[in-house]
Design a protein around this nucleic acid. Structure first.
Length: 392
DNA sequence: TCTGGGGTCCTAGGACCC
DNA sequence: TCTGGGGTCCTAGGACCC
């Protein structure tokens, strides 16, 4: 599966991995291999993934009193209050039910802490593939799993820490938990210390059963083709600003700070390079599309330069406050009540249409810069026109 | 040779995640 | 020709204050 813009391979089947297609490999560099072996290639299809994810999560939720949605394809289930003796059996039931209801294969890892559950899940994937479930039911099983986990495969250990740890001959998760706590604290901050505790069975990561409001919201894209005209940049940036505003309204936040950035493609040696960003303090926190677009374009005016091939721009809104606690100032002349009504109506219409058809003129429809997605699968589950058809 | 001590707040940058 | 997008948390260091 390819990243946005059909740029890089970001998810590969075991067979594709066996052909040597690396995570993050640019598509155009592996194109010949893909063709030669008839590899199925797909563009990203977030609508489809989102819908499938909802279905899986709903199925999981029926098994436990509380669950934490961790990402589009992962969840933590709180089993602490369950009366089950045999959690392995429960894990199997979960896995089979998801398969039956949604058709998606999942792997279940069961353990005393989140970090150990991630280890268990990984162990199930690698060593108990047919079962698809692993339960770290006692200290022997925990040790066995820790020994089998390379340090770089621990959740929370990235490339930098992996290199550092290997320098100290720490190769497995088991080596890691036997390091002195003080060393971890000094070299990996309190973040590493928490992880160390989790892997020793001491819970240090909190549950997050409610989805927390985001503290920053970003919309940015690489262009499907290079852009050097300002009017096209205006159109693209307006769309990203509008998208940020809509995301703000969805979580009932308003932003006090706007960050706008543009950049050229640093991989193109033949092009002059230019990248610049700007922060814009908003006089009053807002989630109004018109205002956010207006300020974003004012920022673009300052940072845009003619004569460059731009390949990306974006908008980040931050310094967020809850919608209902916006501080208005004395000299504020905008008709905020009317603006809010317009935004609500627009959101409602777009939601019912399933597409952002209601928009402001500056956003345009043409999108010459829009993403490439040549291998898009259909929206089987969310678009009537894409329903699979049966033949008799 | 020598240049106070102790706070707070903010931001940039580095680490990580999916 | 062609190289993704969207987040979080922590820390060090600078600015500023008394």
């Amino acid at each position: 599966m390819l990243s946005n813009n059909d740029g890089c391979a970001v998810a590969r089947s075991e067979e594709a991995k066996a052909l040597g297609i690396q995570m993050g490999a640019p598509e155009f560099m592996v194109r010949d291999t893909l063709k030669a072996h008839n590899v199925a290639v797909f563009s990203s299809n977030y609508t489809l993934y989102g819908d499938m994810s909802d279905r899986v999560m709903k199925t999981l939720a029926a098994f436990v009193p509380r669950l934490e949605l961790y990402s589009i394809d992962e969840a933590f289930l709180d089993m602490s209050e369950l009366k089950y003796n045999d959690l392995l059996k429960l894990g199997m039931e979960i896995k089979n039910t998801v398969k039956q209801h949604v058709g998606i294969p999942v792997t279940v890892g069961i353990a005393p802490t989140k970090a150990l559950a991630k280890i268990a899940n990984r162990y199930a994937k690698k060593k108990h593939k047919d079962l698809g479930v692993h339960w770290l039911a006692n200290s022997d099983l925990i040790k066995q799993a820790l020994v089998a986990t390379e340090v770089g495969d621990i959740w929370g250990i990235g490339r930098r820490y992996e290199t550092l740890l290997q320098r100290y001959r720490v190769n497995t998760a088991f080596d890691f938990i036997n390091l002195p706590e003080e060393w971890i604290r000094v070299n990996m901050t309190v973040v590493g210390q928490r992880l160390w505790n989790e892997l020793r069975g001491v819970q240090s990561f909190e549950w997050e059963f409610e989805i927390p409001a985001k503290k920053n919201i970003c919309t940015s894209r690489s262009f499907g083709k290079l852009v050097n005209r300002k009017d096209e940049m205006i159109e693209a940036l307006s769309n990203y600003a509008a998208s940020c505003a809509a995301k703000l309204r969805r979580q009932k936040s308003a932003a006090r700070l706007l960050h706008v950035f543009i950049k050229t493609n640093q991989h193109r040696m033949q092009d002059k390079q230019y990248g610049r960003s700007i922060n814009i303090q908003l006089p009053i926190a807002t989630n109004n599309t018109v205002e956010i677009v207006k300020h974003a374009l004012k920022g673009l005016d300052i940072i845009f330069k003619e004569g460059y091939n731009f390949n990306k721009c974006g908008v980040i809104v931050s310094d967020l406050v809850p919608e209902e606690s916006i501080q208005y100032n004395l000299f504020d002349t905008a008709n905020r009540h009317r603006n809010t009504t317009v935004m609500k109506t627009m959101d409602k219409l777009n939601a019912s249409l399933g597409k952002d058809l209601v928009r402001f003129a500056v956003q345009g429809f043409e999108k010459r810069y829009k993403l490439r997605a040549e291998y898009l699968s259909k929206l089987y589950t969310t678009n009537l026109a894409d329903l699979p058809t049966l033949r008799n």
